[in-house]
């Protein structure tokens, strides 16, 4: 029993490690530049966390099934242009549609969910590897972004949709007390996903599917349904991130969120979720997201040039994964 306890402690260490790093990093940046701990900077960190965090929640679900979703960045942009486009208040808007804020959000998320649903169907029915299926979807969804944007703003192809809307401003820029609205949204969604993963059979099935799909089938789990559901939910979460991005800038760009999917995967992997599936938690992803947010904002504030930031991020990712592998090896050996 004692030995088991120790082993499990080693297991959790990946998350603890990130948490410890997080604290040190925070202290380090604060010492280097006291304004890092200012309310303005903290606010920035929380906003970054919300933007990346919500989508990373979705990515966590997908990775837990043993899959991956490369279409996340495109879906983010798609959700953004649909939401902004339907407002009908864009500058030089040519579309006659003009819907209220809530309706645009709803429709944008339905379309995001639809993309995820299609991902799931292609993966389960056509049996295409998630990597390739979502790679193709990345291309398709990005194309749709242009279709939507161009039909809204009939100017130069690929122009952004710029607009004014109180709902979006609240979502992307508003605060309740001192806390950004988007962060509150993030916290709520985090709790929902946490409870879903921990306390529902469907949530647990996601772990089972990722752990061993044959075992899952034997246990009577409808694996295809679970996978489709996971991709759908994931894309809806990604869509919410997309709307926040649009709200923040009051503009929906056609090139928005390009390559973000890899940041989401990084956040998830940093949090100790295995890219092979079946193991991990959203708490880890929360830590991973916080880690990236603090790192980004901190490097900006201490004025590290963006190219050094690339280098640092690459190194950290390899380091995190190596630490994970190393610990797993130790567990297996002992």
């Amino acid at each position: 029993m004692k030995i088991n306890l120790r082993k499990s402690l080693i297991c959790i260490n990946q998350q603890k490690l990130i948490a410890i790093f997080l604290v040190f990093m925070f202290l380090g940046f604060t010492l280097a530049k006291p304004e890092f701990a200012s309310s303005y900077s903290i606010n920035n960190i929380l906003c970054t966390m919300a933007l990346y965090g919500i989508a990373s929640l979705g990515m966590t679900l997908v990775i837990l099934t043993g899959g991956t979703d490369l279409s996340a960045g495109s879906v983010m942009a798609l959700s953004g242009v649909i939401g902004a486009g339907l407002l009908g208040k864009a500058f030089s808007a040519a579309n006659p549609v003009s819907l209220p804020f809530a309706a645009t959000v709803l429709i944008a998320l339905i379309f995001s969910g639809l993309i995820g649903y299609l991902n799931g169907i292609v993966i389960t029915k056509l049996k295409i590897a998630p990597f390739v299926a979502t790679l193709a979807m990345m291309s398709i969804a990005r194309g749709l972004v242009y279709v939507v944007a161009d039909s809204v703003v009939q100017g130069v192809s690929g122009s952004p949709i710029t607009f004014m809307n109180d709902g979006y401003s609240l979502l992307g820029q508003g605060k309740i007390g001192a806390v950004p609205v988007q962060f509150i949204v993030y916290v709520i969604l985090f709790l929902i996903v946490f409870v879903f993963l921990k306390y529902t059979r469907t949530g647990r099935s996601i772990y089972t599917v990722g752990g061993n799909i044959d075992t899952a089938k034997l246990a009577g789990i409808k694996t295809n349904k679970i996978i489709v559901l996971t991709y759908t939910v994931s894309s809806i979460l990604v869509g919410i991130s997309g709307l926040i991005l649009v709200g923040r800038l009051s503009s929906a760009s056609t090139v928005a969120a390009k390559g973000y999917e890899l940041d989401f995967i990084t956040a998830v992997a940093l949090g100790g979720t295995s890219v092979a599936g079946g193991r991990g938690s959203v708490i880890g992803t929360l830590l991973g997201t916080a880690f990236l947010a603090v790192l980004n904002n901190g490097l900006d504030i201490v004025n590290v040039k963006s190219f050094y930031q690339y280098l640092i991020k690459g190194l950290i990712l390899v380091f995190a994964v190596c630490a994970d592998l190393f610990m797993n090896k130790r567990v297996k050996k002992s």
């Binding site: 890899l262 190219f307 050094y308 930031q309 690339y310 280098l311 640092i312 991020k313 690459g314 190194l315 990712l317 390899v318 994964v321």
Partner: peptide, 8 residues
């Protein structure tokens, strides 16, 4: 990771 790193 190398993609980020090399781009950097």
């Amino acid at each position: 990771a190398m993609m980020t790193f090399a781009r950097g």
